[in-house]
Structures are given as C-alpha cells and as structure tokens.
C-alpha cells in the first residue's frame, strides 16, 4: 500500500495537522513504508475470529446517578490559552 502526497494532505486535514509541503512529500514515503510493512497482516487467516475490543475480562461497571463532580469553573478554565467571563474563547466559528 502506498500513499501519495494528496492522501497525506487529506489525512492531515482530517487530523487537523498543518504540514509543510516538503514534509508532506517525505511523510508520504514514510507512511508508505509503514503501511507496506503492516500489509503482512493480510496473510493471516481471520475467518470467523471476533475482533478484540479489550483484554479486560470484566463487565462494564456502572455508577450511580449522583452529582459528585463539577462546580469548579476556575479549575476548568485556569489552563485555557484564552478565556473571558467564564467562557473558553476561540476564533469566531462561521457556521
């Protein structure tokens, strides 16, 4: 499997990663190498094998419906690069 520059640019867009054009080229080569190596999985016979979600052999725990958290907006906001009047602030979103 080889990926080209356009594919890398498309995935980079999905992952919100700004890439320099010359890096994109190099990255396409590296990704192709890695994906080529990963390709060997196709030779494994997985007919009827259930895909693994977790190795944890337990049931999903459920918690009781109680208010036990929240109420500390200053903690929530104190690491924010930009905040105002108790809100996080980002560049204007144009819908």
């Amino acid at each position: 499997m080889s990926v080209d520059k356009d594919t890398v640019a498309h995935i980079a867009k999905l992952a919100r990663l700004r890439m320099d054009p010359e890096k994109t080229e190099a990255m396409a080569g590296e990704l192709s190498q890695i994906l080529g190596w990963i390709e060997q999985l196709q030779e494994v016979d997985t007919e009827g094998v259930a895909p693994m979600t977790s190795v944890a052999q337990m049931k999903l725990p459920l918690r009781e419906d109680e208010v036990t958290d929240g109420g500390y907006p200053e903690d929530v906001l104190r690491n924010a690069p930009e905040s105002l009047q108790g809100f996080y602030v980002v560049p204007k979103v144009v819908e």
């Binding site: 995935i11 992952a15 990663l17 890695i34 999985l41 196709q42 494994v44 895909p51 979600t53």
Partner: peptide, 30 residues
C-alpha cells in the same frame, strides 16, 4: 507523533477500517 496520528487517522478512515483496524483487532484476538 504526527506520523502516528496520520497512520491512525488513515487506518480508521472510510474504506480502510475493515482492512486495517478490524483486521488488526482480529489478529490481536489470535
């Protein structure tokens, strides 16, 4: 990190999920 984010995004993206991600989960079971 970028390299792995790109690979991860790629293997989960439309059209590749079964060939990569699901296949890997099956092999993980094995």
């Amino acid at each position: 990190v970028k390299r792995r984010l790109l690979i991860g995004t790629y293997v989960l993206s439309a059209g590749y999920y079964d060939a990569y991600y699901n296949k890997a989960r099956q092999v993980r079971s094995l």
